[in-house]
């Protein structure tokens, strides 16, 4: 009986071995390696008041936030802006996600942001904006004065228009000097209004107040005047509330500026 003949050639066996290579490597490998070696930043998707957002971060903090859309285009914009790659991650640091979520729902503790590619002036504007509390608004002129460039309202406006980290750096809390809510890069004035309403800043009332010539409010018992959204102003009862069209009229009436919201340089 001669039925165990060597019927397979080495070539046939080799062809079968080669076919074992027909299996794609998981995409995760590249992401993981680039992130782990620090060659790329990472980003993740998370919920926000304006719908899902992408949050890109590096070892030095949050670098970019955008409304979630086309991932490839987000990555390209990031690369263009920071000269670095960014790769998606399904497991962002839990602490960072938590910090952002708390920030979006009212925490005034600012998370770490990386503004290393912004100019000095832009950085000052953005870091000052980071201080505006949840549910409050400040005019452009306030930022300009606080950072020591009192006549640079317009430049403040363009620095804010280029805010790489909207929502986290709340440029939606900066309004026009005349009290009008103004434009918003992350979806226009309606979105800005919507976010402010959600935060309890009552944008419609603010604008009505400003039209009636009350850009500052004070208390006739304490003789302190504030921005209308300042937490101190909100504690004043209706019958003691006084409106002022500008700071000089308040000062002229013997009121002193609030030390917390600083409507003018506190003495």
């Amino acid at each position: 009986m001669n039925h165990h003949v060597s019927s397979l050639t080495d070539d046939a066996v080799i062809a079968q071995i080669r076919r074992l290579g027909n299996e794609d490597a998981p995409e995760n490998i590249r992401r993981h390696v680039l992130a782990e070696t620090g060659l790329a930043d990472q980003y993740f998707r998370t919920a926000s008041p304006v719908g899902d957002i992408f949050v890109a971060f590096g070892s030095t903090g949050i670098r970019m936030v955008e409304r979630a859309g086309d991932a490839t285009r987000f990555e390209a914009r990031f690369q263009e802006r920071f000269g670095r790659m960014v790769v998606p991650t399904d497991s962002p640091p839990a602490r960072l996600v938590d910090q952002i979520q708390r920030r979006l729902s009212g925490s005034n503790r600012p998370p770490r942001v990386d503004l290393s590619t912004s100019t000095d002036f832009q950085r000052k504007v953005l870091l000052k904006t980071l201080e505006i509390p949840y549910g409050q608004v400040r005019p452009y002129s306030w930022i300009a004065r606080e950072i020591g460039h009192p006549r640079a309202d317009r430049a403040v406006g363009s620095a804010l228009a280029g805010n790489p980290i909207p929502l986290v750096i709340p440029c939606h809390r900066v309004v026009r000097n005349d009290g009008v809510i103004g434009n918003y890069g992350m979806g226009g004035p309606e979105v800005k209004r919507q976010i402010l309403t959600r935060e309890g800043a009552q944008p419609d009332q603010l604008e009505r107040l400003a039209r009636r010539g009350a850009r500052y409010v004070g208390s006739d018992t304490t003789h302190i005047f504030c921005f209308p959204t300042c937490s101190h102003a909100r504690r004043v009862t209706e019958k003691h509330l006084v409106g002022f069209p500008n700071a000089s009229s308040a000062l002229g009436s013997g009121y002193r500026p609030c030390m917390v919201c600083r409507p003018v340089q506190a003495a």
């Binding site: 794609d24 490597a25 490998i29 590249r30 390696v33 680039l34 060659l39």
Partner: peptide, 15 residues
Amino acid sequence: HFDQVVRTFQQPLYV
């Protein structure tokens, strides 16, 4: 250029 190393070799190394 390290990304190019990853792109070139991840597949053969993985299999």
